[in-house]
């Protein structure tokens, strides 16, 4: 049994007749993994399945070797910040975090220490004694995060964790995720802010309509989709001549001059042949300043996958 990955083996989940996720196979290593998909695509269902809040109709899930049906073991290594306000009615932020820690069996003194530490991590110390019901959306987000990290879990699962955070806290939160990931922990999150996910994720899982569209490092996922043409910006002198040479070679699908005058925008399905063509152009004496992939981000990939290709 693999004890440092999260495994989904042919997992399906239906809510009555409504599809949650269908025949999902995932192998999630440690690091930051982002679940990306539109509303209703199945991101939260995947997270709820991992945490045992919902049970699979078929298939098997293990989180670092532990079944989600054993919360007494699983939750010792896992923290989950849901999109719902988990705080029972009428509690303060501090009590909310403290109550969670007491359930972990920490002695009151140790639990208090950890609660304050977690609250400090999310910059809520000043408001800790206020009732959660009086918190703003961003503060609620942060207190849920504090509750999820208070016991320093090995697997941190966060449903839309960056929603409602101001830029400073957002940057601090992302830094914390990176720090967690660098220690060999799992950080799994969902987000609609695709650019952010693109920037800090180690891997991405693209999901739509309950099905996994792609899984892996963004770059690798991108490369797996051979049918989809890659777009590059070629910084070069004599862009018109370069465009003509590329067309002649037949390695590109589309070439156009960059409207901002930086060079040539190229669309190709044959990356290797395109690389060789660039080499030939450079050897012919035309100066190539750089080749930059312009669509190796989640936005482009997702748009392509969800849209069914260009």
């Amino acid at each position: 049994m693999n004890s440092d990955v999260i495994l989904f083996e042919n997992v399906s989940k239906f809510y009555g007749e409504v599809l949650g996720v269908n025949k999902v196979n995932l192998h999630i290593p440690s690091g930051i993994t982002s679940l990306v998909g539109p509303n209703g695509s199945g991101k939260t269902t995947l997270m709820n399945l991992m945490t045992g809040l919902v049970h699979p109709g078929s298939g098997k899930i293990t989180v670092r070797g532990i079944s989600p049906f054993a919360p007494e073991k699983l939750m010792r290594i896992m923290g989950y910040a849901t999109q719902y306000d988990a705080a029972p009615r009428g509690v303060t932020g501090y009590d909310f975090v403290l109550a969670g820690l007491l359930l972990y069996g920490y002695a009151p003194g140790e639990a208090e220490k950890r609660a304050w530490k977690a609250i400090e991590t999310v910059s809520l110390t000043q408001s800790a004694e206020r009732k959660v019901a009086a918190y703003s959306k961003g503060m609620r987000q942060r207190i849920r995060l504090a509750q999820a990290i208070a016991h320093e879990p090995q697997v941190l699962i966060l449903d839309e964790p960056l929603n409602g955070l101001d830029p400073l806290v957002r940057a601090e939160t992302i830094a914390m995720f990176r720090n967690y990931a660098s220690e060999g922990r799992h950080v799994i999150l969902s987000s609609h802010v695709l650019q952010e996910v693109d920037v800090f994720s180690d891997q991405v899982i693209l999901i739509a309509n309950g099905m996994i569209l792609a899984e892996g490092e963004i770059k690798n996922v991108r490369e797996e989709i051979h049918e989809h043409p890659s777009q590059f910006l070629l910084h070069c002198q004599e862009p018109s001549r370069v465009a003509a040479m590329l067309f002649e070679g037949g390695q590109v699908t589309e070439v156009k001059l960059d409207p901002q005058g930086r060079g040539v925008l190229v669309l190709t399905r044959q990356r290797d042949a395109f690389a060789e063509a660039i080499e030939r152009i450079a050897l012919s004496g035309i100066e190539i300043d750089g080749v930059i992939p312009t669509d190796e981000n989640v936005d482009a990939l997702y748009e392509y996958l969800i849209g069914g290709g260009r």
Partner: peptide, 20 residues
């Protein structure tokens, strides 16, 4: 009541057996 308040998962996410 916890289901109506959408706060039951607070308990389900604790390292506690459901019967406990």
């Amino acid at each position: 009541g916890e289901m109506l308040d959408k706060s039951l998962h607070f308990w389900f996410l604790a390292p506690v057996r459901r019967d406990v």
